[in-house]
Every structure is written in structure tokens, then in C-alpha cells.
Design a protein around this nucleic acid. Structure first.
Lengths: 190, 190
DNA sequence: GAATGACTACCATCTGTCAGGTAGGCATCT
DNA sequence: AGATGCCTACCTGACAGATGGTAGTCATTC
């Protein structure tokens, strides 16, 4: 039986790397800074992750797993069509938290320079979001089944774009205004 | 009188740096690669640009100046409401050209790590786009004057988001589909 | 005594940056 | 006409620091 119950260094590294990646991207990730935040030496990270590419892929994977959980919570806590209304809130929270960006938006920009395993996780993040949105759009009966995935993609892209623009002004209220405009225009349900 | 009229190294550097920045961002910019593409030595770039920050700011500035010209051409070549229809084409062209991203979308992601002068130029790019869109929306009578800037911002953010998502799949047809969805949903005029 | 988790000490490579040099062109002064 | 000096547009060679990565060591725990 594990009495020690140490906070698990691997998890701590993952969390620090996630924060760094959201602020500086995959290219901006570096072992020294992560190690310092965790309180170990850079070389020690290699015990847990054999390479930068592995760390990056693990971070991206954990990121979409966490997002998936958040989305499931949204669905469960509220069965009505207002579930969809809360979707932008997930992206808003990143901005609230030190003006951070969606990890996968950042990595989409860096796409050309990403190792193959990282690319795969980034795409999965988009897939997870689109699948959830599509499901909710159908459940809410807003869009014909046939068009739900198409619309889901549009919503995902638009919200990501809004987050990007708001970040470049360090202005959360701009994000809110953009989402509101999407609603007014008819892209998002009101 | 200047008879020489050499192809102007400064311009050549600027063009190479722009290409590199659209593919790898500000952080991914490096003097060696640019120099090699231009056919000079890395240190020689210092003759034309006193620092990386200066080069970055010059590239971003040139970028929005060029975009401004493209937008003006759109307006002049076509007085009708179909001018707005052609707006996404400007972002599409980046993707056509080696799956490149809008320079300022990339730099918005990197915002935290940008030198102050570069930040300013990035914001100006957004301003230029929003101003043009707002003007055209009013001219086309699609949106009440009072709401034109708000809608312009929404369009800009959504199109940038679509470009980002399409890039992460290296799929231009995805960009087209997203734009079409924006039209169907009512964000963009049909 | 094996596994775990961290350490120290390196390394090669890449980065922006800089001081200093050079070769040609042009204008001025003697 | 020749010498002088400044300007342009590069080059060479080096720098300090950061980066991802490796090898080998050591203490603790099961």
C-alpha cells in the first residue's frame, strides 16, 4: 500500500508543461523552465518523458482529455438547450487564467514544426469539440441532423478565433462581445 | 542620380522574413535561415535591421500595409455587395501558398513573448481589417451602422479561426466549407 | 537486490549579437 | 588630376547564453 502518496511528479510536470505550452506554444516549451517550476532539475524530466516530442504529445493528450470531461459535465449538469450557451465559457476560462490560449489553437499555428505524435493529439482536440457540439446541436434541434457537424465545425473555429483576437488585446470583454455577435448573427443559438 | 537600382537587399530580407514568420512565427524566425535564403551572411542582416525586434516589427508592418492594398483593390474592382464575398479569399490565399497562416494570427498566439513594437503592428493589422469590413458592411447596408464595427470584428475573428483550423488539417476545402457555413448561419452575407 | 526518482556533469548545436574589416563608389579639397 | 575621407553594403569571426539530450552516479523504498 502506498502510504507516501507523493503528489506524483509526472502529474506535476504535466501541469507545468501545460501552463507553459498555453502561454508560449510547443516551440516555447523548454525543460529548464518546467523543471524550475516543478522544483527538480531539467535532466530529471527525461526519466518521465523520453523526449520533448513525448512530453508535448502527453500534454496535448491530457489537454483534450480534460476538455472532454468539462464538456461531459456541461451536458450532465444541464439537459436543456442552454448547455450550448455555456460552451464559449470553456474558452473564456483560459483567458481569465493569465490570458492563456487554447493549447491546440497555439499548436495549430505551429503545425508545420510539430512532431507527428503531437499533431495527432491536436487534431483529436478539434474532433472532440466538434463531436460534442454536433451532438448538442442535434439534441437542441437547432440545426438539421445533416448539417450539424458542419455547423459544429463553424462554431468551434469561430470561438477559437474569438479567443485568439481577445488574447491579442488582453481583453476578455472583447471575447464576450464577439460571442454575443455570433449569437446576434445567428451562428450560435441565443 | 541613382543609376544602380540594385534589387534592394532590405526588401529581399523582408520578403524572406515574412515567409518564415508566416510558417514558424516570431519565435521561429531566425537570422541564419533568412540569410541563407537571401544569399548573405546572418550578421549582415544587422546592417539593415538593428535587432530581431526591429525586423519583426518591420515584417508585421509591411504585412498589414500589403493587406490594406489588397483590400483597397477589392473595393475598387467591384462596387457591389459582392466585395464582401471576396474577403475570405485574402485568407484563403495564405493557405494556398504552402499552407501558410496569417502572420498576425500567429503572432497573436505568441503575444506574451512579443516585443512591444511588434505587438503594436499586430494590433494594427486587426484594426485595418475591422475598419475595412465595417466600411463595407455599411456600404452594403447589411448591418445597421451602429452594429457594423461589432459585426466586422466577429467576421474577422471567425475567418481567422477558420484559417487556423484549416491549417491544422492542411485542408483548404475545410476552409471553404467553414466560410460557407458562416454564410448559411448568417454571419457572412450570402 | 531490484526498481524508483532524482542528481551532477557534460555535449553539440543553435541563438541573437557585436566588433571590426574590406572593397567599391562618390564628392570634396588641394 | 590626385589625394582624402565618408558612405554603402556587405563579410569574418567570435561571444555568451540557451536548448534538447546523454551518461553515469547515488540514495531511498519495496
Amino acid at each position: 500500500m502506498n502510504v507516501k502518496a507523493s503528489p506524483n511528479a509526472r502529474e506535476t510536470i504535466l501541469a507545468a508543461a501545460k501552463r507553459a505550452a498555453q502561454a508560449h506554444g510547443y516551440g516555447g516549451l523548454n525543460f529548464r523552465d518546467i523543471a524550475q517550476e516543478v522544483g527538480i532539475k531539467a535532466a530529471s524530466i527525461y526519466y518521465h518523458f523520453p523526449s520533448k516530442a513525448d512530453l508535448g504529445a502527453a500534454v496535448a493528450r491530457r489537454y483534450w482529455e480534460d476538455t472532454m470531461k468539462d464538456l461531459d459535465n456541461l451536458t450532465q449538469s444541464d439537459g436543456s438547450s442552454s448547455t450550448l450557451r455555456q460552451y464559449p465559457g470553456i474558452f473564456r476560462r483560459s483567458l481569465e487564467n493569465a490570458n492563456k490560449l487554447c493549447l491546440c489553437s497555439f499548436m495549430s499555428a505551429e503545425y508545420d514544426d510539430l512532431p507527428e505524435p503531437v499533431k495527432r493529439e491536436v487534431q483529436t482536440f478539434a474532433d472532440v469539440n466538434v463531436a460534442w457540439l454536433s451532438k448538442e446541436l442535434i439534441a437542441a434541434g437547432i440545426v438539421p441532423r445533416k448539417r450539424s457537424e458542419e455547423r459544429a465545425r463553424a462554431i468551434f473555429a469561430a470561438v477559437a478565433g474569438a479567443q485568439l483576437m481577445a488574447r491579442s488585446r488582453s481583453d476578455i470583454s472583447l471575447f464576450d462581445a464577439l460571442i454575443e455577435s455570433y449569437r446576434t448573427a445567428g451562428l450560435l443559438p441565443t
